[in-house]
Amino acid sequence: MYMFKYVTKRLGLMISTFLIIMFMCFVLIKLLPITVTVQMGQDANIIIRQLEGRGYIQNAVMDPATQTWSYERVPIMIQLGNYLNRIFSYGDFGIGVNIPSYRGRPVISVFLEKLPPTILINLYSTFIGVPIGLGLGILAALKKNKWQDQLINILIILLISMPSIVMGLIIQYLLCFKAGWFPTTMNSGYEYFTWSMFRSMLPPVLALCLGSVAGYARYTRAELSEVLTNEFMLLARTKGLTRGQATLRHAMRNSMVVIFPSILSEFIGVLSGSMIIESMFSVPGVGRLYLDAINTVDYDFFMLLSGFYTLVGLLAGIVIDISYGFIDPRIRMGAK
């Protein structure tokens, strides 16, 4: 019951923060003038009418002489009402206005289309990064202050300090250009589970996971070496467990209480942090979409993606606190 109360309180706070941020974003965006750029052969009329239909503007008329549209703004609060109404009644987050390839398409469907590459890359990077990172951390903790530990420590500080831009460039140059193992950019298309697609995904995955490997390794090393000095470890060895058994069953389980939430939060946080990697390797993911939306000033895309990034950031923060409560029996039981 205590956990339930705690979780609801945290979630409630998170949601209210989220709503306030989104409200500010909405107001700030709607204060800006709407620009509709249309290329040759496209009809601005359709887009203007779509905007009108969504209740963003009213009385839109085209001046036949100059071919420009003039319209009246709807008051922002009414716009907000219309926006929320469309979201909750039809699941409609608006339409693309200025990004050339998505002009006139529903924002949400484009977003869902772009989500799989981003999620896949993060999943792969977690799957590759976690075992390596934990392994290195365990090795370093077991061999504390020996040469293995020092080597791993140097590796960790190098990898952690390496900015992801530089990491991406090095991987692109060495593995894609010099060695020629991987294509330079990710394949386009929607066949995500083919070998060639996986191969083209590997450079961004590597660039992402190398940094987090160092993070996991450092965390694991610190936690595990602390647990290993505990008295109960001595007891475990005294009662006849081998060193491996004692480490795996007693030390690891205890240090996991701290490590697991950080993995979870890193996974969620990295969803939003891969914009650089996505743009470097031309991953057709959410990061690219966000950049396109910014560069072409497409408000509906911007609203949706800002919401996504804000939510991801908030979730990453909250998940640590909540998962502590679920994983750590001292907190879970002690509260009763």
């Binding site: 190098l158 300090s161 390496m162 900015p163 460039l169 692109q172 250009f177």
Partner: peptide, 30 residues
């Protein structure tokens, strides 16, 4: 760095110098 990345295959030095600078800066500040 962005301008160097476009010519990474033919002229890697364009991206190399700023990257080395950035990496060294991050490392030493860390």
């Amino acid at each position: 760095i962005a301008s160097g990345q476009q010519s990474l295959a033919t002229a890697p030095f364009v991206a190399m110098f700023p990257s080395v600078f950035l990496a060294l800066l991050m490392l030493s500040f860390n």
